[in-house]
Design a protein around this nucleic acid. Structure first.
Lengths: 362, 362
DNA sequence: AATTAGAGTGAATCCTCGT
DNA sequence: GACGAGGATTCACTCTAAT
């Protein structure tokens, strides 16, 4: 990076995240995932109908004297995170209604560009024992790019595959972290009050990173982000202030076995496939010069020239340009618009010919 | 109220909501519902894959020079709303990720006490046409009391009854306002770009008001809040700046017949049946990436990728698609076709894994 | 009359590479 | 940087027209 600073990859750093991020080189991580303190302000112990005490979040790290102090803290760590983030990187920040509006406003004020707000719908939330509000059955994740013009990464095809070939929506249904996944001490008490499910991080990291990318988590807790990153073949930098959490995280991460490359693979994006000019198909004789192209409804036909251009009446140019011209459309994907008629009358899109040679072209 | 000012009940006031709220007596309304401009900031036209143009919200009333101007506007009208609100009253404010963080932060800064953030999950949202983000499939409503000590009203039993005797959660699934409910002009064009569904207001007003209570909507638009309030036997005050919207609202409200008292009680809603994508099993580790799937006769095998797609030779895609491809069949139910082999050699169909999590998923 | 095919549409911050 | 060209991209529902 030219700064003389090396990235402390695949480590859990113990200390204050603002201080420690200051020691990282600028524009060096692909993604930041942050689950900061929620500033819950639970005043009195909450009791269930059977009078048992609910084990709420009342740890020292979660309390701030007032909203202004929480805002100052939020803007300080978010500012450092932005400095450390690559230009094409994205951040994920999580919260509930107690703090998420502070987080979102701070992101916008610092110049981040919100891409989505994601709702984690909990399939098994804690009921509202007092019956005084709606069951608080979700938390919110904000996904943001470094700025409005950022060319961020979104693994669209992978997200679509994960949702049975329908676009992934902004509402995600996932259970809480329970059972064997939940870290516990020797007495069976939960080690961390707000441990997040690995499934949540699986989706987050698969959405916005590639193999080998670096993920920074400034509030690592017991290491969910790092564990999932390691399993998926990503690099991580974890920061945690409480030694007990950091120790638990380190042990947990060490036990994770990375997936073999093939298993961690995701559906490739079409945009990332090697580009094949139409002229290549003409050169190789798959669609020889003189071939006649038609659209699916056979409304228009065009003739292929030796240089890969096509002509339809007076319109001449690329398959895309001529497709747009004949339809009077602003643009056109000639690969899927134009077809070749086989001897039996069946139509094959140019895209199918392209797929045939894509294997040998990369 | 002792102020000498009378409440203009069951009327649509035309003008600026800040000015007009100043003319209302303090502490006089039971609830405020506000769907303010979202400040969308759309830059370029967006086209669907078929090249048709999306009719985006580009009205002058939704445009602000910058976030500071939007914040100033927000705090001005919210401040007046707070003055007009009774001590035991609550407010509802709606937004999307463009503006909801500004709204929430302003509420907190003005002294309101957030009770819930409610997610309106749209059953039929517009897709993300360019595949660059998650489908923006929800909007957020913030429900807040006047302050931390307020003795607000929450009709717990009514909400529970509305949800088949389960506590009403903070995520609500409702369709967009379409069909005959959507107000249109003589040419069939929508009268208002963002008309809200009556079902949403039905739930909101039923949750926090009683018969005869007064509901104020400072951004009435075409009158959804007022229409539902009248039908449910509540009083309303609507404020709208655009005369065309106010006129349409007045006509619409006049046509509403209040429900007989007994009927205003409850309309039951069905609980939703969750659709579970195969990717969910992968994320949650029930069928981890790298797992090998076989058909019942063990004629074919396929490997599971991290995004829930599977691969068998060169065939890659969903469990259904690959199942169909290997059999050269037009379609295939991957849930029953593919199996995982247990250590003892027994085969378990994917459907059995799905059944395991279906219970906790609703 | 009952289906079916096709067109239309919804609060949208919606592309990327090479020259 | 600007500019031009390549080419990637949609889900659920309603309504109309045709069969």
């Amino acid at each position: 990076m030219g700064t003389g600073l090396a990235l402390p990859l695949d480590q859990v750093l113990v200390g204050d995240c603002i201080d420690l991020m200051r020691g990282l080189p600028p524009a060096s991580v692909h993604a930041v995932f942050a689950d900061p303190p929620y500033n819950l302000q639970l005043k009195n112990g909450l009791r269930r109908p059977d009078h048992s005490l609910v084990d709420g979040v009342d740890d020292a790290w979660d309390s701030f004297p007032d909203l202004a102090a929480y805002d100052a803290f939020t803007r300080a760590w978010l500012g450092e995170a932005r400095r450390v983030l690559r230009k094409d990187g994205t951040v994920w920040v999580m919260g509930s209604y107690h703090n998420v509006f502070r987080l979102g406003a701070a992101l916008q004020d610092l110049g981040f560009w919100v891409l989505n707000d994601i709702v984690w719908r909990k399939s098994n939330p804690m009921p509202n024992f007092r019956g005084r509000r709606f069951t608080n059955a979700h938390e919110t994740l904000i996904w943001a790019a470094r700025g409005p013009e950022s060319r961020y990464r979104f693994n669209y095809a992978a997200m679509k595959a994960l949702n049975e070939d329908l676009q992934m929506r902004s509402d995600w249904l996932l259970p809480l972290c329970t059972g064997p996944e939940r870290l516990r001490d020797s007495k069976g008490a939960k080690l961390h009050p707000t441990q997040k499910p690995e499934a949540l991080l699986h989706r987050v990291l698969l959405a916005c990173t590639g193999p080998g990318d670096v993920v920074l988590d400034p509030f690592l807790g017991t290491g969910t982000t790092a564990a999932v990153a390691k399993r998926l073949g990503r690099r991580f930098i974890g920061i945690e202030r409480e030694e007990a959490y950091a120790d638990a995280a380190a042990g947990r991460i060490a036990a994770v076995e990375p997936l073999p490359e093939a298993a961690a693979a995701i559906t490739p994006a079409k945009r990332e496939q090697p580009r094949i000019p139409f002229g290549t198909l003409v050169e190789r004789g798959l669609v020889p010069p003189g071939s006649v192209l038609v659209d699916r409804a056979r409304r228009w036909s065009a003739q292929v020239a030796a240089d890969g251009s096509v002509r339809c009446g007076r319109a001449q140019g690329s398959i895309h340009r001529v497709g747009a011209l004949v339809q009077d459309a602003p643009s056109c994907n000639g690969w899927t618009f134009w077809h070749v008629e086989a001897r039996d009358g069946r139509l094959r899109a140019l895209d199918e010919f392209r797929a045939e040679i894509a294997g040998g072209a990369g």
